[in-house]
Each structure stands twice: as structure tokens, then as C-alpha cells.
Design a protein around this nucleic acid. Structure first.
Ligand code: MN
Ligand code: MN
Ligand code: ZN
Ligand code: ZN
Lengths: 134, 134
DNA sequence: ATAATAACAGTAATCGTTACTGATTAAGAG
DNA sequence: CTCTTAATCAGTAACGATTACTGTTATTAT
């Protein structure tokens, strides 16, 4: 009889649960405005962090100074476009193998792991190509 | 005839050039105080960022909300202790192999890469062991 | 030594995030 | 269906790391 499922929390969950684009708190806030017109940014942060702490979602920090949120809690890597900033999943990589590789060169005990790959995303690669040809 | 090498910049470089502990700007600021008693934190930031932009050092963002600085600009991975926060180099891993592995599962062009491993560092593993035995 | 300007110290501003506070409201009990 | 109460809220203030501004200082070339 502890946790109440408020309308705001439900709206935030509905918004993020199927996302694959790793929105920021600000983006969630804007996206949830239609369902909850006067929700506050603090409420969005509080709920997102609570969802992280209870394992419903995970946070992704890609180095742009902003926290991104990800409903996909399975082990996977991320690609960040240096041109447009998009954060894209890299599925199917052998995460365990990478962990083993690093463990072989370190004396401590490795528990978690997160990797970020940088470069031009498919979209930006395409527009860079059209720009050079014209 | 553009860049002047100030006493402050020299002191910052002398402080960081052989470090392997990935100090923050605040730590560099404190460490450089003996050589430059009234240097300002802004000067430390400006110079560290300038050194990064010119490739003398690199920045390391491990997810603790603070930028760490690293004079080792060669490709290498990092380990972050979840207990004490230390940032430790993992040398000798096959960085290229990891990049290839990820590239195989992604359609964009991967240029850079950085990985962070989390767990208990050797020191904290040791003290955790003594605590359980006593 | 002098001039030109890169770089400085000090301080104010920015921005993402967190903490506080009095008002709502979801959910279990009767 | 009320009633109670504690979880959650909206609004706003505070926070901490980083960046920007401004008038002064000091490095470098002449
Ligand atoms: Mn993801
Ligand atoms: Mn390093
Ligand atoms: Zn892109
Ligand atoms: Zn440790």
C-alpha cells in the first residue's frame, strides 16, 4: 500500500515505454503536456528517476551534458551522431565478449559496462553525400 | 604569433601532463594553487578546454556530472569504482576489435568510441574483504 | 623600452537538475 | 460511497558545474 500510480506517472510511462529515441527530461515534459497540460518539469524528473531506481527504465549519459532516458533495459550499446546528436541503439553486439576483453586487462571486478560509439548517423551520412555531389 | 604561453598555462600543463588519475577542473585548480596562488577556476577551465581542443589532452565523462581530464590521448578504456569514484585506465584492450564488433551491427560510419566499465576497484575490493572477515 | 593583444582574475550569468512547501488526490478501510 | 491519510503534485527556490563578460595584466615581437 505504498506506491500510488498517479495520472502524471501513467502519462510519462505511456509516453516513454515504446520510445527508441532516448528522450531527455525536457522532451518527455513537452511530449506529455498534451495529456497533462500543467504537469511540472520537476514531476517529470522525479518520476523518471524513480522509474530508473525501480528498474523500469535506464539512464543514458552520452556526454552532451543532458540525461537521456531509455525504456530498453536489456544490455545494448549506443551510437551518438556527432552532427545531429541523435542517440541510436546498436543491437545484436556481443556485450559479454567486450566485458571479458576488458576484464582480461584489469585486476578489479567488472560488474557493469556502457559503451558509446561516435560518428555520422545514416541520415547525416546521406545528406553529407548529396551535399558533396551537387 | 598568436598563442602566448602564460605562467598559468604552463603550471596547469606541468600539473596534469603525467597524471594517470583523471583529475577534475576543481582538482587541477587546487593542485596548481601552490605554483599560482591566485589563479582563478575560470582560467583552469579555459586552459583545459583549450588543451583538449588542440589535442594535448582529452576529456573523460564518466557519468558523475563532472568533467575529468586525461593527458593520455591514446585509445584506451576506463574503469570507474562505484564505491570511491576513482577513474582507472584499462590499458592493453583491443579497442579496434570492439569498434569492428559494433560496426558489424550498425549501418552508420563509426569514428570514435569510448567505453566505461563499472565495479569495485582493487583497493575497495580489498577493504570490503577485510570488513567481511572481521 | 614600447606597443599590441592574448590571457588573466574576479564576478555574474547560464542551465540542467534537485530540494522545499503547502495544496491535491489516489487508494485502502469502514 | 464517504473518510482518512500518506503519496504525489505544481510551483518555485536553491544548487553546482560550467561559461561568459569586463576591465586589468603580462607575454611576445619589434
Ligand atoms: Mn538504448
Ligand atoms: Mn585515461
Ligand atoms: Zn545525424
Ligand atoms: Zn574504489
Amino acid at each position: 500500500m505504498a506506491t500510488k500510480f498517479s495520472r502524471q506517472r501513467q502519462a510519462i510511462w505511456d509516453f516513454i515505454k515504446d520510445r527508441t529515441d532516448h528522450p531527455t527530461a525536457e522532451a518527455v515534459y513537452l511530449g506529455v503536456k498534451s495529456a497533462c497540460p500543467n504537469i511540472s518539469l520537476g514531476t517529470v524528473y522525479r518520476n523518471l528517476m524513480l522509474m530508473r531506481d525501480t528498474g523500469m527504465i535506464r539512464t543514458v549519459e552520452v556526454g552532451d551534458g543532458v540525461i537521456h532516458f531509455d525504456p530498453n533495459t536489456t544490455d545494448h550499446n549506443h551510437f551518438i551522431c556527432t552532427n545531429c546528436g541523435k542517440v541510436i541503439d546498436i543491437d545484436g553486439g556481443d556485450v559479454e565478449a567486450i566485458k571479458q576483453e576488458a576484464a582480461a586487462h584489469f585486476t578489479g571486478r567488472i560488474q557493469g559496462y556502457s559503451a558509446y560509439f561516435y560518428g555520422l548517423c545514416p541520415d547525416c551520412t546521406k545528406s553529407a553525400a548529396t551535399k558533396t555531389t551537387e
